[in-house]
Simulated assay, not measured.
Amino acid sequence: MSMISANSVSDFYQTYYSIVQDTVPLALFLSDIVEKMDDEQRDYFKVAAKRTKDKKDSYFLFERSNDELVFRGVRTSDTRFH
Rank of each mutant, 00 (worst) to 15 (best):
Asp78Thr: 01
Thr15Ser: 11
Asn66Ala: 14
Ala48Leu: 11
Asp43Trp: 01
Pro25Tyr: 07
Ser10Pro: 00
Ser5Phe: 02
Glu63Leu: 11
Asp54His: 08
Asp43Leu: 13
Asp11Gly: 00
Ser2Asn: 13
Tyr59Gln: 01
Val20Gly: 01
Ser31Leu: 09
Phe29Met: 06
Tyr59Ala: 01
Asp54Gly: 02
Phe12Tyr: 15
Ser77Gln: 10
Val74Phe: 04
Gln41Glu: 14
Leu61Arg: 14
Val70Arg: 12
Ser77Met: 12
Phe81Ala: 06
Ser65Tyr: 13
Ser5Ile: 03
Ser5Gly: 04
Phe45Pro: 01
Leu28Cys: 07
Asp78Gln: 06
Val34Ala: 08
Thr15Gln: 07
Tyr44Trp: 14
Ser58Tyr: 00
Glu35Gln: 11
Arg72Lys: 15
Tyr16Pro: 02
Asn7Ile: 02
Asn66Trp: 10
Leu28Glu: 15
Lys36Ala: 14
Ser18Asn: 14
Ser5Glu: 04
Ser10Glu: 14
Asn66Gly: 13
Asn7Cys: 04
Thr15Tyr: 01
Phe81Glu: 09
Lys46Asp: 02
Asp39Ser: 13
Val47Phe: 00
Val34Leu: 15
Arg80Tyr: 05
Tyr17Thr: 13
Val70Ser: 06
Val20Glu: 04
Ser77Val: 05
Ser65Val: 11
Met37Val: 09
Lys56Ile: 01
Phe60Val: 07
Leu28Val: 04
Val9Glu: 09
Phe71Thr: 01
Ser31Glu: 15
Asp22Gln: 10
Arg72Met: 11
Val9Ala: 04
Ala6Met: 06
Ala48Trp: 04
Lys36Arg: 14
Asp38Lys: 08
Phe81Asn: 05
Leu26Trp: 10
Phe81Trp: 09
Leu61Met: 13
Ile4Lys: 03
Pro25Phe: 04
Lys55Phe: 09
Asn7Met: 06
Glu63His: 08
Gln14Lys: 15
Asp54Ile: 03
Thr52Arg: 08
Leu69Pro: 02
Val74Gly: 05
Lys56Trp: 00
Gly73Ile: 02
Ala6Phe: 08
Phe62Leu: 07
His82Tyr: 09
Ser2Asp: 11
Ala48His: 08
His82Gly: 05
Thr15Ile: 02
Phe29Ser: 12
Gln41Ser: 14
Ala27Val: 11
Tyr44Phe: 15
